[in-house]
């Protein structure tokens, strides 16, 4: 009898606990509005000053992009991740750098990256680019987007 009471009490606690956790689950939400002016993302890059496009860096960036990114990203079409055309118009350079350098934390904590994960389902892979390599990829994107004007 005593055992039964304890069991019942525990069940109540457990049920209550479960109920509480459910409450904390994030609500269904639409894509987070993206404000390229504010969102720098989370990661090593806090602020950037961009100069004119550096042709040498663009070439480096194209090489790195093909080697470490192109398996999942095309410019004009969705493959695994989003098409990257105009990415420099949609996102701040710091955000792009941080997404490349720190994707795991970004998809968990950055609302924009998290919304993209929901839309594209596959998490962005950590490809361990150096900051210099990521910078060159950004330059490649800048060149690509500028050429389209």
């Amino acid at each position: 009898m005593k055992k039964l009471i304890i069991f019942a009490a525990l069940s109540v606690v457990f049920t209550f606990y479960c109920g509480e956790e459910k409450k904390e689950e994030p609500k269904e939400e639409a894509l987070v509005p993206i404000d390229p002016k504010d969102d720098i993302g989370i990661g090593p890059v806090k602020s950037m000053q961009l100069a004119d496009i550096d042709g040498k860096l663009v070439k480096e960036g194209e090489k790195v992009f093909k080697l470490k990114c192109a398996a999942c990203h095309k410019m004009t079409k969705r493959l695994v991740g989003p098409p990257l055309e105009d990415v420099t118009k949609r996102r701040r350079p710091e955000w792009i750098m941080n997404m490349i350098l720190n994707p795991i934390e970004m998809i968990q904590k950055n609302a924009t990256a998290n919304a993209l994960l929901k839309q594209y389902t596959a998490p962005m892979a950590q490809q361990n680019l150096t900051e210099q390599e990521a910078r060159s990829v950004l330059e490649y994107f800048r060149k690509y987007d500028s050429g389209k004007k």
């Binding site: 093909k66 080697l67 192109a70 398996a71 596959a122 998490p123 892979a125």
Partner: peptide, 27 residues
């Protein structure tokens, strides 16, 4: 080393599949 270089090459009865892998697909 890059996805656009992946290919399938026939040499008589021998076929070489140069395939890439990344999370989570083959190319």
């Amino acid at each position: 080393k890059t996805p656009e270089k992946t290919r399938v090459v026939r040499k008589g009865k021998e076929v070489h599949v140069y395939m890439g892998m990344i999370r989570s697909h083959f190319v």
